[in-house]
Design a protein around this nucleic acid. Structure first.
Length: 564
RNA sequence: GCGCCCGUAGCUCAUUUGGAUAGAGCAUCUGCCUUCUAAGCAGAGGGUAGCAGGUUCAAAUCCUGCCGGGCGUGCCA
């Protein structure tokens, strides 16, 4: 019997009991059809394993106290539990402070352990294949500079989200939108050209708003080494060369940083390619045919207010060129054409004004606004020795993701970002992070895994003939063993909650609790001992813990050390 | 001015979509290594959840108004 079946059946039994209570005691009252009868895992094991607030929800409807309603429902519940075949798994149902609390039987938890052991790396994976085909776009940094710490936060979250959603049954494609045309890119090329000419003592001035970072000089040097003075005589062709070279160079750097950070993209879509395929024109024509485009003051406007935006937006400027919005609409249309049923964009907070207009565009294109989720990942305020540091890619002042990777490592950095909610405005003190990286919380979880590997090694070395006879899980009766079993059984719920809320931090919190349960168990319960039957049962429990830790950390793409 | 986000322990952050006594890590203090890893365990102290109202059986969570911080409010991307 699986977790899911148990909770569903229990909800069913509870709903029946509630209905029956209404029929018997309140013939005049109407039982609400959409009554939200639900069951959750308890926060505190002292309250049992599962809990429902049904009695409190129905109390006001029934015009009786939660206590009276609860008592009535609990009485009827025994019979319903019996009928739904749950009596072996539900040990008790009792009313406490208005909540109806359920205690699961030992048999239930033993079944969970057997499931974990049988399903291995699939344990926690959603059995149902959802039909959603998701396009998850994140980072999408302009290739005008190295990735910064803020991109790192997005990268870690996007990557983990993709893994969690896939595990939950969605088909997910991770996409990087490559902004390879436009003003910023032109400036990038021009900046490199000026630096290149500097190397030949042609001291041209940097363009206004040019890129001042050291890396621009690196690119210029590389060109000089490869091609000498070949590009000194400027021309349109040469300008294009510098631009393309710089973009390629930067994308190589960006991809190296991403892959070292454990972040994998499936596709890169280039804005230039979208424009070349005339998709912007097509998108605008589509909107035009729907009557959502009008002319005013020499420009073309998208009537986004008709879909809830505060004001209409210009899409074609009076000089005939596009605003940023036009290619972005085309890009989203392109995604829908690739048959994605659901789009998720991770953006920085400077784009929050963008949400309404893009949702308006999506609706004008004939799609449900709900098919687009725009998640704002808040910035990281970078601190250095308690002082906040302002960052500007253009001025060349920033802390790169590379520096973070080199200083504190992939696992610590990923964990740091993943354990926070995406909308928290968090402070990252790099000096503190370097100092504290030795006792970073990520090691707490990894250490649990390393300890398990050590136990396994020890048990093999002292082969207690543990492989004979059947494993009797009924021997697992200590408080710490029960807590650990309970925690293990929560894993599928934690994954589900994380996927539904699009919040990887929930999974992190769960893994932290699991590690805590394990460390506590480890301290109190000797695994490999003279009691062979008990050793065998405990080894089984430890193996299950290892599987769940591996599945969980795998979703976060954090390393599983065999020893530390 | 208007819009979005945030304000929780000395510091950094959680709080399972409105539930029970608001929890972790760091820092401080007290115990625990002759046995599978002490990067650990058990415990103590530390809180008017910015402030004031409201909705609800129940509010850190939802609504309103203030206060404070960040970001936006382009025919920039």
């Amino acid at each position: 019997m699986l977790n899911k079946n148990v909770s569903e059946k229990l909800v069913e039994a509870l709903t029946k009991a509630c209905k029956q209570y209404f029929q018997e005691h309140l013939p005049d009252a109407v039982f609400p059809k959409d009554a939200e009868i639900s069951i959750q895992m308890t926060r505190d094991p002292g309250h049992g394993d599962l809990t429902s607030n049904a009695a409190m929800r129905l109390a006001s409807l029934a015009k009786r106290s939660p206590k009276v309603v609860g008592e009535g429902v609990v009485t009827l519940l025994e019979d319903q539990i019996e009928r739904s075949g749950l009596s072996g798994l539900i040990k008790s149902a009792e009313l406490k402070g208005g909540f109806i609390n359920f205690r699961l039987s030992g048999a239930y938890f033993r079944t969970v352990l057997e499931n974990i052991h049988a399903q291995k790396d699939s344990f926690g994976r959603s059995e149902e294949r959802r039909k959603r085909k998701i396009n998850l776009e994140f980072v999408s940094a302009n290739p005008t500079g190295p990735l910064t710490i803020a991109h790192g936060r997005q990268a870690a979250i996007g990557d983990a989200l993709a893994r969690i959603l896939r595990f939950s049954g969605d088909n997910v494609t991770c996409e990087y939108y490559l902004n390879d045309v436009g003003r910023q890119i032109k400036l990038l090329g021009d900046s490199v050209e000026v630096r290149y000419r500097d190397l030949f003592d042609k001291n041209d001035p940097m363009p206004e708003d040019g890129y001042m970072g050291e890396y621009i000089i690196d690119i210029a040097r590389e060109i000089k080494e490869k091609s000498g003075d070949k590009f000194l005589a400027g021309s349109d062709k040469v300008t294009a060369f510098f631009r393309n070279y710089a973009v390629d160079y930067m994308m190589k750097l960006i991809n190296k940083d991403l892959s070292d950070f454990g972040v994998v993209f499936d596709t890169w879509t280039s804005q230039g390619a979208i424009e070349e395929k005339k998709e912007v024109e097509e998108a605008l024509e589509f909107l035009q045919s729907g009557g959502y485009i009008y002319d005013s003051e020499g420009a073309k406007w998208f009537a986004s207010t008709r879909f809830g935006d505060d004001k209409d937006r210009v899409v074609v400027k009076s000089d005939g060129s596009y605003t940023y919005l036009a290619p972005d609409i085309a890009y989203h249309l392109d995604k829908y054409r690739r048959e994605y049923t659901h789009l998720i964009d991770l953006l920085g907070p400077d784009h929050h004004g963008y949400i309404r207009r893009m949702k308006a565009a999506v609706r004008a294109l004939g799609h449900d606004a709900k098919s687009l989720d725009i998640l704002i990942v808040q910035l990281v305020t970078l601190m250095r020795g308690g002082e906040s540091v302002s960052m500007s890619t253009r001025k060349g002042e920033f802390v790169s993701l590379r520096e973070i990777l080199d200083e504190i490592g992939k696992d610590v950095a990923r964990f740091y970002f993943l354990s926070r909610r995406l909308d928290s405005h968090l402070d990252f003190d790099i000096d503190l992070a370097k100092k504290e990286s030795a006792d970073n919380p990520v090691f707490y979880i990894q250490y649990a895994h390393a300890r398990i590997c050590s136990i396994k090694k020890f048990s093999r070395k002292n082969s207690f003939r543990l492989f004979f006879g059947r494993t009797n899980l009924e021997l697992l009766t200590a408080k710490e063993e029960k807590h650990l079993m309970r925690k293990l059984s929560e894993f599928p719920f934690a994954v589900k909650a994380s996927a539904e809320a699009l919040e990887p931090n929930r999974l992190v919190a769960y893994l932290n609790e699991l590690a805590r349960s394990f460390h506590s168990f480890y301290t109190e319960c000797r695994v490999v001992s003279d009691d062979k039957a008990l050793s065998k049962a405990r080894l089984f429990l430890v193996e299950c813990t290892k599987i769940v830790l591996a599945n969980g950390l795998g979703l976060l793409n954090i390393t599983l050390p065999e020893k530390m």
